[in-house]
Design a protein around this nucleic acid. Structure first.
Length: 471
RNA sequence: GGUGGUAUAGCCAAGCGGUAAGGCAUGGGUCUGCAACACCCUGAUCACCGGUUCGAUUCCGGUUACCACCUCCA
């Protein structure tokens, strides 16, 4: 039975979707004001892996996510780049699509933008005002947090303290407008020159940050969903406020399972602009990092644990991935020489499948699942070395590898890499030298290739090469 | 201050009441012209103190350290 940890209850719970066989899932997407950083990527990868596992075991997943495509951060970036808010958003939406495709993250079933749901946002806020849960104040609209029973439960914060903390950082303008410092904005009046504003019953303005997610969920998934995901930092205030809005709007439970991913640290430090270690996926890939290795690194750690990113951890991920790839490649080169089916191996595969699923069913324990993957790698390597192999077994082993690794977003097991002309020439010369048993020359050529990052090894079927990624 | 989390071999990291999975690295071996790959073998009493128990890394209490949230940062 599949179990998931729920931030709301702080407990691991049996997973029961609203409708058998179907999952409604929403994950908070990025504000598109820059290239996505490792944290964004981790979140997307964590929930992509979860989604893929659900699909693997037979669920149909409706996966909805958003782009926050407006806001002061986007405006500020526009100033820097000489672009409009809309242009900035478009640019980084495209970059998001590109980067996530490289990382082999499946596109959401529905990817909605805040600006696409403006009429719905206004209606939604109107509903909250009409119910007396929100109030207008000088062109702004605020949600009355006090009217949300259990406000703050998700982050396990005491209401009075939240209120006190909020009071301590209130700016003077908002202090006048808010009835209570803990109230949060649903709508902000907008009168700045050259900044787009949308019409509303409270005058021209823009939506608050939290409302878009509630509205999109309502529109695309309905009033109650199975899983809501996002970074752990979003539990408060973002998700807390979503609960207040949605449960106020619908008078029913909003989310069955709250799932939050842990952070990515860079060289054991929090990734932040002030530390200057903000690492974007775009930059890493531009510098030649193997996207599959990056995906593997960010996906192999349990989703709630922090990940440390460094040259060292990336290197180790690359080494592990290469080992997996080599096993798969060796298997593809095996020629079946025997009919029949080795039931011992097939039986072992079934038993491994059971343990693989047990691990993933346990709140997506990827570490344990990968232990089974490495057992499979070992089994594959052993089998490839045997004297005789059977087609049925080869196929079964290959399928198992591709199926499992696909859950982790690893699909490039063969590597499409090619040698360039210079490299190919050296490689061919070495083959000749070896054939002539000129070992001095062949060793020298091997060193030359090694300097180019190509490892050459001799096998019974001749030379093989592998490009070594070192970071 | 409040809340949540984490502390296991050189590194990454499982286990969560019965004398510590896996990966990387290290060392040894087989294979190889030499290497590489692969295969085989090789390592820790689990932050500290107390308690419960026949027995605790695993439960309870306490201490210490680190991290995160309590400011639209995933």
């Amino acid at each position: 039975m599949l179990q998931t940890y729920n931030t709301y209850s702080l407990e691991q719970e049996e997973f029961q979707p609203l409708q058998a066989g179907q999952i409604k899932m929403y994950v908070c997407g990025p504000t598109v004001y820059n290239y996505i950083h490792l944290g964004n990527a981790r979140s997307a990868i964590a929930f992509d892996t979860i989604r893929r596992y659900f699909e693997y075991v037979g669920y149909k997943v409706n996966y909805v996510s958003n782009f926050t495509d407006l806001g002061d951060k986007i405006l500020a970036q526009g100033e820097k780049e000489g672009l409009t808010e809309e242009q900035v958003a478009q640019k980084y939406e495209a970059a998001f699509d590109e980067d996530t495709a490289q990382l082999n993250i499946k596109p959401a079933t529905v990817r909605s933008k805040a600006t696409e749901v403006m009429p719905e946002i206004v209606d939604y806020i109107k509903n909250l005002v009409d119910q007396g849960l929100a109030y207008e104040s000088e062109g702004d609209v605020y949600f009355s947090a006090k009217k949300s029973p259990d406000y703050g439960h998700l982050s396990h914060q005491n209401f009075d303290e939240l209120e006190e903390n909020a009071a301590g950082r209130l700016d003077p303008v908002e202090a006048k407008r808010k009835q209570d410092p803990i109230d949060f904005a649903l709508w902000k009046g907008e009168h700045r020159e050259g900044v787009k504003a949308w019409p509303s019953p409270w005058g021209p303005g823009r939506p608050g940050w939290h409302i878009e997610c509630s509205v999109m969920i309502q529109k695309y998934l309905g009033s109650e969903i199975d899983i809501h995901g996002g970074g752990i930092d979003l539990a408060f205030p973002h998700h807390t406020n979503e609960i207040a809005q949605s449960e106020g709007h619908n008078h029913e439970r909003f989310v069955r399972y709250w799932m939050h991913n842990g952070f990515v640290n860079v060289n054991n430090e929090k990734m932040s602009k002030s530390l200057g270690n903000f690492t974007t996926v775009h930059d890493l890939l531009a510098n030649g990092v193997d996207p599959q290795a990056l995906r593997y690194l960010l996906g192999k750690t349990h989703y709630r644990r922090p990940i440390n990113y460094s040259m060292d951890t990336l290197n180790q991920a690359q080494i592990e991935l290469d080992r997996i790839r080599r096993a798969y490649q060796a298997l593809t080169e095996v020629q079946a020489s025997e009919k029949g089916e080795d039931l011992t191996i097939i039986g072992r595969l079934d038993e491994m499948e059971t343990r693989f699923r047990e691990a993933m069913d346990d709140d997506f324990n990827t570490e344990n699942a990968l232990t089974v993957v490495f057992e499979l790698v070992n089994l594959v390597n052993q089998y490839s070395k045997e004297d005789k192999q059977q087609e049925t077994v080869i196929t079964a082993l290959q399928k198992k590898m591709t199926d499992w690794l696909a859950i982790f977003g690893i699909v490039d097991l063969l590597g499409q890499d090619q040698l360039n002309e210079t490299e190919q020439a050296l490689f061919d010369q070495r083959a000749e030298a070896r054939a002539a048993k000129d070992f001095a020359k062949s060793d020298q050529l091997r060193d030359q290739l090694a300097d180019l990052g190509i490892t050459v090894r001799d096998t019974s079927q001749g030379q093989k090469w592998e490009r070594k990624q070192a970071y």
